[in-house]
Each structure stands twice: as C-alpha cells, then as structure tokens.
Design a protein around this nucleic acid. Sequence first.
DNA 1: CTGAAAGCGCTTACAG
DNA 2: CTGAAAGCGCTTACAG
Lengths: 341, 341
Amino acid sequence: MKPVTLKEIAEKLDISITTVSKALKDYKDVSPKTKALVKELATTLNYRPNAFAVNLRTKESKTIGLIIPEVVHHFFSSVIKGILNQAEKKGYLVIILQSNESYELEKKQIELLLNKNVDGVLISLANETADFKHINKFLSNDKPLVMFDKIAKLVNCSKVIIDDRKAAYTATKHLIETGCKNIAHFRGPLLPQNSIDRFLGYKKALEDYNLKYDPSLVFICENTSFEDGSKFAAEIVKNHPNVDGIFINTDMVAIGAITQLRSLGIDVPNQISVVGFSNWFMSSAITPSLTTINQPGYEMGKESFKRLYKELNAIKKKKPLSTKTITLETSLVKRNSTKNN
Amino acid sequence: MKPVTLKEIAEKLDISITTVSKALKDYKDVSPKTKALVKELATTLNYRPNAFAVNLRTKESKTIGLIIPEVVHHFFSSVIKGILNQAEKKGYLVIILQSNESYELEKKQIELLLNKNVDGVLISLANETADFKHINKFLSNDKPLVMFDKIAKLVNCSKVIIDDRKAAYTATKHLIETGCKNIAHFRGPLLPQNSIDRFLGYKKALEDYNLKYDPSLVFICENTSFEDGSKFAAEIVKNHPNVDGIFINTDMVAIGAITQLRSLGIDVPNQISVVGFSNWFMSSAITPSLTTINQPGYEMGKESFKRLYKELNAIKKKKPLSTKTITLETSLVKRNSTKNN
DNA sequence: CTGAAAGCGCTTACAG
DNA sequence: CTGAAAGCGCTTACAG
C-alpha cells in the first residue's frame, strides 16, 4: 500500500495542494464546505502526513534522546517510566540509548543524537565520564539538554538531582543516633558526583558527631552490585570486628551485604546495623527489611522531562531561559536493619 | 550556531551542490582532488547532513519502534538491553514506548509509530490485548513487525518466544520428581498466551504423572507482583494445608510467596517446595534460593532485533521473506526452594 | 476563499 | 569529471 499524499487528495478533489494542507490544519481562511470535503476524503484514504517532510519543513521532530548508563537497573527504569509517561502527555517520542557506563559510547551517542536532529536530550552521565566537551558541543547547537541523577556540576545546563550529601548525612546520623560507633561506608566509584557527595555526607556526619573518620573503613564498589556488598561485608567481619554500622551507597549492594552478614551468623541490626540508599522495592521484602533513603526515580524522570519541555518551548519562542537545578526531596525509611532509637 | 548545509560548502568552494554531495559519499565519478577539498571543508565546518532531508529522500530513518508493557521489570529491561546493543551495532535507533499493559494505549502507540514513519516495530503485547487489528494495520504498510515474549498466535508476523508450555512442564515435573503430591499453581492473567501456556504445561505434567488436577489450587495473579505471591501463599497455608509444592508464574511472585511462607513458619522446601519462572538475579540471593526456569531476556531482545533487521533488509531489496517463529531454549535452575532428588 | 510559488536540504538520473 | 534539474512531501507568505 503506497502512502497517501496531499497531492493525491488534491487531485481527487480537483483543488490545490495548498488548500488541502490548510483544510487539514483548520486554517480559518478555508470554507467549511471545502474543509469537510477534504477531511472526509483524508479519513477515507487513511491519510497520514509524511513525518519526514513535516520535520524538514518545521525543523523539529517532537523526538528527544535519552542516554542512560544502564537500563537493567531498578532506579533507572523508574526514571525511564517517569520520562515516558510525561513525554506521552506532551506528544514527544523518546529515543533511548544505553551508554554502558562508558565515556566513549556516551560520546558517540551524543553524536548520533546530534546527527538524528533530536529536539533535545536527557542524560545521566556514565561513571567514566570526566570530560564534558561532547555535552557542550551538543549544547552549542542551541538545543536543550537536561542532566539527571549523575550530573556534572561544571556544565551549564539544567539538572534534576537529589541532595546526595544531605541524604547520606541523614542516613549516617541515623546510624549514630541508634548507637553505632564504628561506621563503615561502601561507596560507589570515584568519579560520579553522587557517589562523591554520599561519601562526603557520611564523612561530615562522623565529624559533626565526633566520631573518628577511618579511611580503611571506606570500600569502593566498582560495580555497585550484590557481589560487591557480599565481598566487602565478609571483609568487614574478617578484618574489622569493631564495625557496628555500615552506610551503603545502593540498596542492591546493601542487600548483598546483609545476605552475607546473616550467613556469617552476624545479627543485623544488633551486631551490625545497615542503611542502604534508593528504596528499591526489594529492600522491604528481604529479612531483615532494609532501612534506606528513598530516592524518587519516577519523579526524577517526570521532572527532567518537564524541565526539558519548558526549555524546548522557550527556544521555540526565542525567549531565553536560564538553566535551573531542581533538587528533589529524599527521606529516610526506617526498617529493621537498624535499631530503634 | 546555524547548521552547515551542502549549499554552503558548495558556495565556499565554488562548485555545485551535486558534486559536494557526491564527494562526501565517495562517488567514484568525483576527482580525488575535489573529494579531498570537500571533505576537509566539511570537517572544518563540522558539517552534519540534515537527517530530516535525508529521511525524506531515502524514505527511511534507521529508526525502529519498541513497545513494552512495563519498563520497570527485570525481564523486560534485559530484553531492552539486548535490543539496544544489537541496534547499536547495526546503526539503528530505538524509540521506546510503554503500553502499561493497556490495549488502548498500545493501539495509540502503534498509530504514533505509523505517523512517525519508523522503519519497523518490535512489540510485546499488553495483557489486555485480545484484538489485533492495530497490529495488522501496521503490517499492511509493508513494514516489518516482530513480536516477542507476549505474542498473538493469530497474527502473521515473525515471533521470538520460549516454549512456555514445555518449560512449565519441566518445572512441575521437577516438583513431582522431588516428591510433591499436591501442587498448586500461581498463574498470570487470563489473556496472555504465555500465562495460558505455562498453565497448560503445569496441567499436562500433573496428568502425565497421574496427579489429580484441582482447579481450586490455581490462583490468578493479576499484577504478577510480590504482593500477589504473599497473598496467595497465606491463602494456601490457611485453606489448603495439604499443598506441598507450588509452581509460580514469575520469580517476583515466587519471592513474595517464599517470604510469606517463611514468616508463617513453613519450611521451604521441606513442607512446601517452590519453583519460580524467569531466573531473576534476586532469586539466587534470597533464602532459600529459588529453583526456577531460566528465561533468556537479553538473548530474546537480541534475536528479536536481528530478525527485524533481516526483514528490514529483505524489504529494501524487494525480496519477500516469509515470517518465522524463533524459539529460545530455557532450562531448569535447581536451587534450594525444592528438595534434592 | 483559493492557489501558484518558493523553499526546507538532500539525492540521483541524466546530459555534457 | 562536473553540474543543472527534478523531486521527496510538506508548509506558508503572498497575490488575487
């Protein structure tokens, strides 16, 4: 079946292409009679405007790009869901790309999206990314880009984040207030801003409550995986018997740690208390259920798209819009992996 | 910064647009000297072909649509990952849409993709979908569509699936062979082919091994959620004390069931054995670890894209290609929620 | 109220 | 080896 064009409708009705186009778009300078005729035939023939031609004329495609470090990840899939729901409402389509935490891939993907001529981009940076030329290159095309979760402070664009430092402070403080004296930290990789901030929040809490900060109690989880948690929990038990609390970068790692601790016969929370980060749904399902920081993924996706949408419209109207950083609220969810205070 | 066009390059070099276009595409009827000149300037000016114009001329966009019932789902995110990796290799971009298990949304999204003029579509049907006119409409545009996981047997298109009936049979047989006599089944919703097939495999195994099929031991999980599992496990304990095995449609539900059983003081596997389905990574992390059917999500995504890609190329070359159903292998992963035999 | 014309930025068959 | 021209299917400023 060959697609129907304006030309075809025009010929059948013996009027001009111009009039057909206008009739379909409800221009007021077309007679109601013509409009009705055109619309009827368009429906009958199942007319569908050729998106490629429309894009070329209007210079926009109502399509945005989304670059995510890792799709198979509960937090990020919640973000995706939030973005998709919002995009749907506003009539935008989303091209999804996974950077696999690789800087090279991320760079290539930004290039792909630039070539594709998307209207804007939503991105959460790869752990490896330490250079932002590719991002600035995208921005220099006068197209909006919004970063979320894993952002670069140095890039001048809008951002949607949580206050990782504050959240980590709250988590660590909770451990301190429930009686922990020797608190370890399983942190994320070195580069991402959010693992840096969580580490700093942890450190600050120790200082504020006069607990000694001991670098040997900080473990770097390269993959933020179940196995990382399991491995370091075993190491804690073996080499740091005085540790009585652990603040862990991510729930997945925390669950690995708790599983290991229990299999080593450690009482959680009485011998060692654990606080996670993200409030993954599994954290309420395990035993003991995990005390954690609620990180609003769905909402982050929603807000990121909303912000991008605003900038998209501002650019269309040639009204400049300064960049904005939106900080979403987090909260401590107390469960059974920490003691009651 | 206004985008650079062929025209601009042509003017600067004082040659024709045609020659510039050909030079950039390495046509052999352009002199090496001209080619070098054009390419150099293109690089300097950071020339990027306007994708909208190219699409309009070539009538393809190297973009496919992907409709998924639910993004926040481990199995589906693995499928997405498989699709993205493969698409990346072949230079295709993926527009992702979430149907939310809603037939109406799915229908609307097919329409959106048709309007967008994507080259092809990958889809896993919503649970609600019982009518396939929208799918056939898409197919009638001579564009390929491949279904995966949740398919419709009646639609004439390629499909990538597992043998759900056989896998369920294997799972149930394992329960029987490890001594279970009264086996319940927590099944998925009524419509999707795969929950029907898993149910049929369960039933067939009971028959083949001369165990009575008791409809009151089949529970329908509308949301295939942790809560469903928890709820029905409690019901089993309360109302069906003779049940000694459960075959469960999905790992998530199975984990909900195991958590509930343990909190009710039931010994898993000795009082009640449990087999799940999907081999979600959490199933090896819980206690007891879950015996389950390994369902290859990543591979399913990969194969689905590969098949679509083949059909895309066949259509381009006007070589017809008959539809094909690809069945991926599953396997039983024995862990500690069932007894050793 | 209707339509001829220009143009978005490219590709390619054809002429020279 | 180079280029004029047509055309992909739309939109819209402009003339009548």
